[in-house]
Design a protein around this nucleic acid. Sequence first.
DNA 1: AATGTAGTCAACCGCAGGCAT
DNA 2: CATGCCTGCGGTTGACTACAT
Length: 281
Amino acid sequence: MAAEAQFGCGGGGWRKGPWTSQEDALLVEHVRQHGEGRWNSVSKLTGLKRSGKSCRLRWVNYLRPDLKREKITPQEESIIVQLHALWGNRWSTIARSLPGRTDNEIKNYWRTHFKRKGKPSKNIERARARFLKQRREMQSQQQQPPPPQSKEVVVEHRILAQTGGNDNDTRANSDTCCAAAAAAASTTTLPGHHEAAEEDVMILQDAMMDLMLCPITSYYHHLLHHHGAAVQLTDGGGGGSCCASTSEEYGSSEEDGATWGSLWNLDGEVDVDGAGACTLW
DNA sequence: AATGTAGTCAACCGCAGGCAT
DNA sequence: CATGCCTGCGGTTGACTACAT
């Protein structure tokens, strides 16, 4: 079947479907000459039978020279998970924290790796295994006399200690505590802050006081505030808790709640009852 | 080897916000 | 102020590929 027949022009006369290398070349040349933007003029100037939207999408998601072509690394995955807990489905916002990654890429990654219904995927199992391993390492280090350790580990230990990083701690509010645990217990590598400075230790100690009341938002707020990062943390709205403790605010659904449960209730101990209580390791 | 299923990714669609007129 | 256009965003779809049965 000819591509033109399958992906022929739409109602507006625009071609749809996969881009050809010729079309790519035309678009790249156009951007080289005129820069990004004014996408609707691309078809007039280049003869491309593509809508402005289609051109923009093709450029942003595929042709941009600064795009990373390799797979998303565990470090990036970690950032995605944490930022999603913070910002919800604001893919473009998350993408800005991951140079070379597009919102579409991150969205797809999230959907395929963390948003599956039913049984967890292999990827999610791998993520769990990785996290479990990380946790065990941290716990074993915690039990040993304090060896020279990285600042990041110090940070993690403090977080774990103060967020109830033991096997018997129970907290109310499943979403909040799970998300906070996710953010706090995993290696903290915020975009642009890949190494926890000594300052961060102090900041985090400070933040942990708030964390008991408002885990994830205060934690990130302190880190980001002290580093001058531009971030908006939405207040839960007059109703009391400053945390986006409900799934709505995180842009997540019940489904997401299940995802978080499966992701972070690594011992299978989350017991979300009507009151929303959950048990963390 | 054939078939079914799951995973991945590129692309489209509809909507909303910003801006110029 | 109202309107229309442009751009960007998030959700969804569909084709292709890899893997399992």
